[in-house]
């Protein structure tokens, strides 16, 4: 179980995350929604310590994550897989190697430098390839793949880590609707079949409503909403997005995708 307790992050004068407290049970699929700049990304990055909290603490299964250092911190990062909006693969290496890299958190330095993986790990990699439908592209350089495929490679890499929790930072923001659907269903499958907790920040309500067990809404660094998709009323949405006219995509980066991810009028005005 993940416990975030009074966590804040200040950058000079700006407060990105202000006193956030949250509990996430094992096996939940939690979606974090909010405008860009609301602190979603920063919050996720504090969980695996890519960003340091300025105050507060984070506990996972009784371990105080915020106090970890050195090899303990590495071990925690190996257990908590992160999926990035820009995939963050190694472009010039092939897909299979990228996936195998998911295991290096568990190896010593020297063996991993020479790519000494066990047979069991290689079998895992092949299984991940199969599961995410990447067999055909296994030996292509990662940079030659489409966005959707690259994100699936990232998910395969995350699977190799045998994670206790997956932190997904806007995983579909750079993808077209069809690939976005594929990626979200893969994540849902991982959540369902492997029982892995997933914390996913999203910029469309539709995706949040469709895939998440719980939704957390953030605005100006604070949590302003917590509940099930059914609880997400018009008023709640309004408060989260603070008067944004369009309820669909409110991200500055990506243009509103057409098709199934755009809000349907009847959903937006549905009562609680």
């Amino acid at each position: 179980m993940l416990v975030i307790d009074g966590v804040s992050r200040r950058f000079d004068t700006k407060t990105a995350v202000a006193n956030v407290s949250l509990r996430v049970e094992r096996g939940q699929f939690v979606g974090i929604i909010g405008r860009s700049g609301a602190g979603k990304s920063t919050l996720l990055r504090m969980i695996n310590r890519l960003v340091e909290p300025t105050s507060g603490q984070i506990m996972f299964d009784g371990i105080e994550v915020t106090k970890l250092r050195g090899s303990d911190l590495r071990a925690w990062r190996a257990r908590s897989a992160m999926i990035f909006q820009q995939f963050n693969l190694v472009p010039r290496l092939d897909v299979l190697t990228n996936i195998l890299l998911g295991r290096i958190g568990r190896h010593g330095t020297l063996p991993s430098l020479f790519m000494r993986f066990t047979d069991a790990e290689r079998a895992m990699a092949v299984e991940a390839l199969d599961r995410l439908d990447l067999m055909a592209a296994a030996f292509q350089r990662a940079e030659t793949l489409s966005g959707g495929q690259q994100q699936r490679v990232a998910i395969a890499r995350a699977l190799m880590q045998e994670p206790s929790i997956v932190l997904a930072d806007e995983p579909i923001a750079s993808l077209d609707p069809r690939n976005a659907e594929h990626v979200m269903s893969s994540l849902k499958a991982i959540n369902g079949e492997n029982g892995i907790t997933i914390l996913c920040s999203l910029h469309t309500l539709e995706a949040a409503r469709r895939y998440c067990d719980r939704i957390v809404g953030m605005a100006n660094g604070k949590v302003v909403f917590e509940g099930t998709p059914a609880d997400l009323t018009q008023a709640a949405v309004h408060e989260i997005y603070q008067g944004e006219e369009r309820e669909g995509d409110v991200s500055d980066d990506v243009a509103a995708p057409a098709g199934w991810l755009a809000p349907r009028p009847e959903v937006a005005s549905a009562p609680a």
Binding site: R122, A123, E127, L129, D130, A138, F139
Partner: peptide
């Protein structure tokens, strides 16, 4: 199914 795929994959030089 998986072991067949595994066997196929091990034919590749990288493995």
């Amino acid at each position: 199914m998986t072991s067949a795929r595994f066997a196929a994959a091990t034919r590749y030089p990288r493995f």
